[in-house]
């Protein structure tokens, strides 16, 4: 700090010490987020490496049974992956069609007053704690479904998946609504000038133009479904099972982590390390989905 000319001061090069302190503090706060990611990777990777040293990749990826807490322990991840895939698929089968239809309604057909009321009301759905949805799935939805679906167990993928779809739907409708509204009016006017009616315009011109935004919304919904924990822990059961039958109890990757955390598995044991290996799988798959979804969403915005 040799005096510092006015021009330098204006460019902010010679800041007084107090300014520099503030800058350093808030830069630290911003860097904490990077540290958080590094922490997640370090914790998961550390324990996962320890896990694979003892178990090996083949026993994890090539076995079809998951019984790490039994005396005769098996570590095949596929039953947990199947449970996660099944509940997520059911959730998406609810959330994507319903969410996209709602997005079309809100963006193209709803009166402004309806829109002003419905958008925040849908946000409420996303704000309900997941443990409450778990209660709803187990105590209300499953008994109701048992009247309709013969052979539906008290814990099952169907009820949990449907309720999870209800939770995720607002995300799809909100991002979908943004994507549809980003389609320039010129396209709508062009279609109508060519004689298309309103519905044809929406389905044949507007939706295809918004497809990457809608795809991005769906991919982010997949990520949310894979990572959802309490609904599936409460309502889908805790029985790792390689099945596509939505009527029987299954266990998701997230539910397994909760199950072990609730028990008295000693820290540092092999059984304890399994939750980090499972979490590492979960982290990598949700991260991949999020990056892909964000990329598509950015592309959609640039297009719009």
């Amino acid at each position: 700090m040799s005096g510092g000319s006015l021009a330098e001061a204006i460019r902010g090069r010679s800041e007084p010490p107090r300014e520099r302190l503030v800058r350093a503090l808030i830069l630290g706060a911003a860097l904490l987020s990077v540290l958080t990611t590094a922490g997640i990777v370090a914790v998961l990777a550390g324990e996962t490496v320890g896990f694979f040293r003892e178990v090996g990749f083949a026993a994890f990826f090539l076995d079809t049974e998951w019984t790490p807490l039994f005396a005769r322990a098996r570590f095949g991840i596929w039953p947990l992956v199947a449970g996660t895939a099944l509940t997520s698929a059911i959730a998406l089968a609810v959330a994507v069609p319903v969410g996209v239809l709602a997005a079309i309604y809100l963006a193209e057909f709803a009166a402004p007053a309806t829109r002003r009321f419905v958008k925040p009301a849908l946000e409420l759905l996303a704000g309900v704690p997941t443990v409450v949805y778990g209660y709803f799935a187990l105590i209300f939805v499953t008994p109701l479904l048992q009247h309709l679906v013969p052979g539906l167990a008290s814990f099952n993928a169907l009820g949990a998946g449907i309720v999870m779809g209800l939770m995720i739907m607002p995300m799809v409708s909100s991002l979908g609504d943004d994507a549809i509204r980003a389609v320039p009016d010129a396209l709508r006017e062009g279609a109508m000038a060519l004689g298309a009616d309103r519905l044809t315009t929406v389905l044949r011109v507007v939706l295809p133009a918004a497809r990457s935004g809608i795809l991005a919304a769906s991919i982010l919904a997949v990520s949310r479904a894979i990572g959802e924990t309490m609904i599936v822990t409460i309502a889908a059961g805790q029985q790792p099972r390689l099945t596509a039958d939505p009527r029987v109890p299954v266990e998701t990757m997230t539910a397994y982590i909760v199950q072990v955390s609730l028990g008295d598995t000693p820290a540092g044991s092999l059984a304890w390390r399994t939750i980090f290996a499972v979490a590492a799988m979960l982290f990598v798959s949700t991260l991949a989905m999020n990056l892909l979804g964000q990329r598509l969403a950015r592309g959609a915005r640039r297009q719009g």
Binding site: S33, T36, T37, G39, I40, V43, L44, L220, S223, R224, I226, G227, E228, T229, T254, I257, V258, S261, I275, F276, A279, L282, F283, T286, L287, M289, N290, L291, Q294
Partner: peptide, 14 residues
Amino acid sequence: ANLAGVPSVIYGLL
């Protein structure tokens, strides 16, 4: 942006 999408159960492990 990516942290916002990390499942909450993973924060538990962190």
